[in-house]
């Protein structure tokens, strides 16, 4: 769906993107991760043709990026904005028509979405009279109103209360099920694991890692196991710092070069093993580890 090759962009002396390659397959939710200022927004703006790259190519559906592709993209910027004095209905109609829908099509779509998200009664309200969460919903609908095959969401959950965040999350998954490709840019790693099929990490203008969640997680495995034991038959070594709760001992152990089964065998000598599970690093930990390792090497 989206392919990016050797993309470069700098603002004066500051590099915003350095030789970034990306490949986003159709129908996936793709997470674009990185701290603030890493270059995510620049990358997104280039895809949206808001700014031009210095060098490199962007392809959408195999074609070199061109003005006509604007209509294939739905874009929710990190900084939300609506006309405060405009009514919900007029606002949605304006955005929909700017994305190339005819007035008639737009009206049908707006009606559908207003009903779906139970916002029908607000349609004649001005944005300034809505709560922040309501305005965010209006913004979200405005983004997807033209059924774009590619959806780019920059920090989509910021500003939503948990209930509305859940609604939006479900809408994203529903759109994915219908074949929409979604690019999700965020610096909040925890939302990624739930939604994304693939991720790319960007730090200081460079892509430092990409692939499926499983692959990314396999790159950095600290090989640490979480263990709980009870019915102790033997005193535990003192270097295994454990927490005791009514005869149950919990602690973590690194493999230290052993195979998992060897470690399990060893543990069984100490008592009844109730839990033996590899600790999977969070995206956050992977990210921090990756940043450190790229900076050191």
């Amino acid at each position: 769906m989206l392919k990016i090759e050797k993309l470069n962009k700098s603002y004066g002396a500051n590099k915003a993107l350095t030789d970034v390659d990306l490949n986003v397959s159709e129908g996936l939710v793709f997470g674009l991760l990185g701290p603030n200022g890493a270059g995510k927004t620049t990358l997104i703006r280039i895809i949206n043709q808001i700014i031009d790259s210095d060098s490199g190519e962007v392809y959408i559906g195999g074609e070199l990026l061109a003005p006509k592709h604007i209509e294939l993209i739905g874009y929710l910027p990190e900084e939300r904005g609506l006309y405060k004095k405009m009514k919900v209905w007029d606002q949605m109609l304006y955005f929909a028509r700017l994305k190339g829908l005819s007035a008639q099509e737009a009206k049908i779509k707006i009606k559908y979405w207003l009903e779906k998200l139970e916002m029908d009664t607000w349609k004649d309200k001005k944005i300034e009279d809505l709560s922040k969460g309501m305005a965010q919903k209006v913004q979200f609908i405005s983004t997807i109103i033209h059924n774009p095959p590619l959806l780019i969401l920059d920090e989509p959950f910021s500003g939503f209360d948990p209930v509305n965040a859940e609604i939006i999350k479900n809408e994203i998954l529903e759109l994915k099920a219908k074949g929409t490709t979604v690019i999700l840019s965020t610096h909040r790693m925890e939302s990624v694991e739930l939604l994304c099929d693939q991720v790319a990490m960007i730090n200081r203008s460079k892509k430092i890692l990409d692939g499926s969640i499983k692959r990314v997680k396999s790159i950095y495995r600290p090989e640490v196991y979480s263990v709980t034991l009870d019915h102790l038959t033997k005193e535990l070594p003192t270097e295994w710092i454990s927490k005791e709760d009514e005869g149950t001992y919990s602690f973590t152990l690194p493999l230290s070069g052993k195979a998992p089964n060897e470690l399990l065998n060893e543990l069984m000598q100490y008592g009844q093993v109730n839990r033996f599970q590899e600790l999977i690093p969070s995206m956050e930990e992977i990210f921090i580890h990756q940043v450190k390792s790229t900076e050191n090497g």
Partner: peptide, 10 residues
């Protein structure tokens, strides 16, 4: 009001 970012993407 940052509307402009949405507008210039269209």
């Amino acid at each position: 009001s940052r509307i402009v970012e949405i507008l210039v993407s269209s």
